[in-house]
Simulated scan of single mutants.
Amino acid sequence: MTTMSLLTRSTSAEERLDEAIVCANVPSPLSSVAFHQDVECIRRFFAAGFPVHLAVHRVDSAEAAGRDYTALHTHEGPEINLILPDPTGLEYRLELGSRVHHVTESTSIWIPPGVPHSANVVRGSGYLIAVRFDHGGAT
């Protein structure tokens, strides 16, 4: 069953309860994902076995790295990114197609299928959470 059919089908609460998934977020390097490189300030956790691609990136005391660690790439399905700063602040530089956004507040980002994108931390601490609704890799 596809992820979208799981999200949209009509079933009883009892039937949905049988499909509930509790999944540990396991450490997984950024470099395990195409178009990404490891950086010291980010610890990545992946929900292996989850019905959608779910990755939690913990950012600690990032300073300008002087390089991007995520290259522009696309996906076959849509993606949601959530940026959640710690009280000390977090800044990300997002590229969405030819547009560049500097995000410094708690922000939700919708990335439609096929849109070239990248997210690179500039400074600070907090979380970037990525949820992707396809089963394919980055292209």
Rank of each mutant, 00 (worst) to 15 (best):
A62P: 02
L7W: 04
D60W: 02
E40H: 08
L82A: 10
R9K: 13
V39N: 04
G126M: 03
G49L: 06
S125G: 03
I80N: 04
S12E: 10
F133K: 06
S28W: 02
G77D: 07
H73Y: 05
C23T: 15
G97M: 12
S28Q: 14
F50T: 01
R123T: 13
H53R: 06
T2K: 12
F46G: 00
L84I: 15
G124C: 05
V121K: 03
P116M: 04
Y69I: 14
R93F: 00
M4N: 12
T104M: 09
S10E: 15
T139G: 13
V131E: 09
R132V: 11
L84H: 02
H75G: 05
E63D: 11
G114H: 05
L90K: 01
M4K: 08
H117F: 04
A119C: 13
D60R: 14
F35W: 06
L72D: 15
D18C: 08
S106I: 03
C41Q: 13
I129T: 09
L82M: 15
T11Y: 02
L96V: 08
H36T: 07
S5R: 10
L54D: 04
L90G: 02
L6Y: 01
S10R: 13
V59M: 07
E14T: 12
S61G: 11
H102K: 10
V52R: 04
D18T: 14
F45M: 08
